[in-house]
């Protein structure tokens, strides 16, 4: 009988503590002018103070990998706009992945994730690298078992979700919340658009004019991508797992199509192309100028222009200097 009373008391006390402590305010989320609509999944998982804090820590947690060496941040390096400088991603035990690491920025505004758009909701993505042989080569229960050994996570999960339980869903949701907060909209270009007193140089202005003429039909909106999938005739990845967008849809028309990349912070994410075919942005422009590989489903805009985007050297210089104005130094910590 005594035991029962003691148990009863301790239960009640814990409950009170739990209710008292749980206060996890939603964070303000600013929509930069001209950005496209938010992904619907965002509304069901809006960033909160403590889940974002937890998500950031999980993002940089090497215990996510089988041998505790690789975190999300290993490939998604903030100094490279959360991409890296390798042609293809390098994961656990130096295993080489299929594709170039995509930057993580402005994710809340994207309707498709990864170069083939296989993921439609950000919360569905974190499991993929955890279980992929070439990335982290672990499993979610293995990860949870390791996190349970770290006392700090108990508090972090409690603050974020109201009790200390570590679940797969909570891991996915907190990482996604952290990633939603990675908004980059403070480049020189943005400041000029917002009329904060800066001006394009003459070359940059010329580059912007050329860009609007020759690039903006795909690199559209203030995200600098229309989020469509296109085959622009880049040298193809001969890896047998690669089919571009068709890997997901199975449609011949989607074969070797890839999501048009955003050009924000593009100077930080070399090399370029789905598997890093191009070392520099100049290489990309040279390739478009010389002419791309033909394909049955080559983008109609390229087809209509003889499979190329003709550019002289001055024009390339101008476009390159315009692209530099899309760099958000604060975002990449420089």
């Amino acid at each position: 009988m005594m035991t029962a009373i003691i148990l009863f008391c301790s239960c009640e006390k814990q409950e009170e503590e739990g209710t008292f402590q749980f206060d996890n305010p939603e964070l303000a989320f600013e929509l930069p002018a001209g950005f496209p609509a938010l992904n619907n999944a965002f509304y069901a998982n809006k960033p909160t103070q403590y889940a974002v804090e937890l998500g950031e820590r999980l993002f940089n947690e090497p215990k996510f990998s089988g041998n505790n060496t690789i975190s999300c941040g290993s490939c998604h390096n903030p100094n490279h706009a959360f991409a890296d400088n390798k042609p293809r991603a390098i994961g656990i035990n130096d295993r080489v992945g299929l594709r170039n690491t995509p930057p993580i920025q402005n994710m809340a505004f994207m309707q498709f994730y990864n170069w083939d758009g296989n993921i439609l909701e950000l919360e569905k993505q974190p499991l993929v690298p955890i279980i992929t042989h070439e990335e982290m080569n672990s499993s979610i229960l293995e990860v949870i078992a390791k996190l349970e050994q770290v006392p700090a996570y108990r508090d972090l999960f409690w603050k974020a979700f109201g009790d200390p339980e570590i679940t797969p869903e909570r891991i996915y949701r907190s990482i996604a919340q952290y990633e939603y907060t990675l908004v980059s909209a403070n480049s020189k270009y943005d400041r000029i658009k917002r009329q904060e007193g800066e001006q394009f140089t003459e070359t940059e202005a010329e580059g912007y004019r050329l860009f609007q003429q020759k690039c903006a039909s795909c690199h559209a909106t203030e995200l600098f991508t229309d989020q469509s999938f296109r085959n622009v005739g880049f040298p193809a990845n001969s890896d047998t797992q690669e089919a571009g967008r068709a890997r997901v849809t199975g449609l011949p028309a989607d074969y070797m199509q890839f999501r048009v990349p955003s050009l924000r912070n593009i100077v930080y994410t070399a090399p370029y192309g789905s598997f890093g075919q191009f070392a520099t942005l100049r290489d990309v422009l040279d390739y478009f100028d010389k002419g791309v590989s033909d394909a049955a489903n080559l983008d109609p805009l390229l087809k209509a222009n003889g499979n190329r985007i003709p550019l002289n050297e001055n024009e390339k210089e101008a476009i390159l200097s315009f692209l530099e104005t899309l760099s958000d130094e604060e975002f990449v910590g420089q």
């Binding site: 619907n40 309707q111 993921i119 439609l120 909701e121 997901v248 849809t249």
Partner: peptide, 14 residues
């Protein structure tokens, strides 16, 4: 299967 997306949102895949 490569089916993705929940009801009411966009869906894709085979």
């Amino acid at each position: 299967s490569t089916v993705a997306g929940s009801e009411g949102n966009q869906t894709q895949g085979v």
